[in-house]
Amino acid sequence: MIGPASTDGTLARWFEVLTLSGGYNTNVVLFGVALLGLAAGAVGSFAMLKKQSLVADAFAHASLVGVAVAFLVQAWFHSWSGSPEAALAGAARPGPERNMVVLLVGAGIAGAAAVAAIEFLVRKTRLRADTATAAVSSASFGAGIATLSIARRVSGADQAGLDSLIFGAASSMTRADAYAMAALALIAALFTAVLFKPLRAVAFNDRFARTSGLPVNAIDIALGALVAAVTLAGMQAVGMLLVVALLITPCATARLWTRAVGPLVATSAALGATCGVLGVSLSRVLPSVPTGAVVVLIAAAAFVVSALFAPERGLLAGLRRERRMRAAVLVALRAPGDPGVNSGGAER
């Protein structure tokens, strides 16, 4: 993928980007995605502790139908106020910011409807959470694909807004987007810091939290809203198909290193931000690599390394412990003075 000849130049350029000398636009994207990673890492750990990470995935998949419908509604409004030709042209360029806000509102509504549908299926029927999540997420994504095919025909060639939400377009991030990410990260940080104890209680045992007088429903809704906000913000950066990785992977990695909730949230947020910085900077210096996928893959690399080498919960540590135990068993059983045992136990 990278020509060996250009390796030196690439490294120098990478260093440049990492030290914030990569130009204004690059810095905006760098900060934006790093703050997004921070927020996602913090919020995502509570979603994971509540075993609701995949609900965020359903939210993201279902938002496609909302995005496509919002796009069509927009086009329809324009056709209402002008000639059909103006309608097609209008759908194509109503100004990128306004366009994006409408699409995100549509995405939010559709995503929330999907989460409500999952909740309905789990509470009112005998279906289990995983079945309900997979069914709602995939069926609404199908509806999204079908609606999208109409939107594509209406809009003709230009559909930058649509594609940037589906596949992510971190590089087109504007200063306003970066401010939005900063606000989101601030809210997420404040939320987790101020409500840390109640959140921990709800995540661990919400029945107990309820009996001890905590407003569990309000906390649940607030957490859900934050997860939704992070998901919507992340869709612009890494795309709706991959955004859930920002919510899951850093937290799963952090969980391999720590058990306590406080360090878990902190580690996860730090990991999210780091992966954002590394991913954006790498995608800036390597030719034609998609930013979202690189961010996700770097987070995944951290996870794989941790899953193998983490001191207590890692795969290798577990295998070593098991081998040592087996050896110890054999030694202990052969030890003189242990009643009734000599060589018998060890032969198999």
Binding site: R321, R324, R326, V329, L333, D338, G340, V341, G344, G345
Partner: peptide
């Protein structure tokens, strides 16, 4: 059962049971 030792991961659950 003779000198049965069974472990769950690295934790012996049964120790030398006959």
């Amino acid at each position: 059962v003779e000198n049965l030792v069974v472990a769950y991961r690295a934790e012996p659950v049964l120790w030398n049971v006959t």
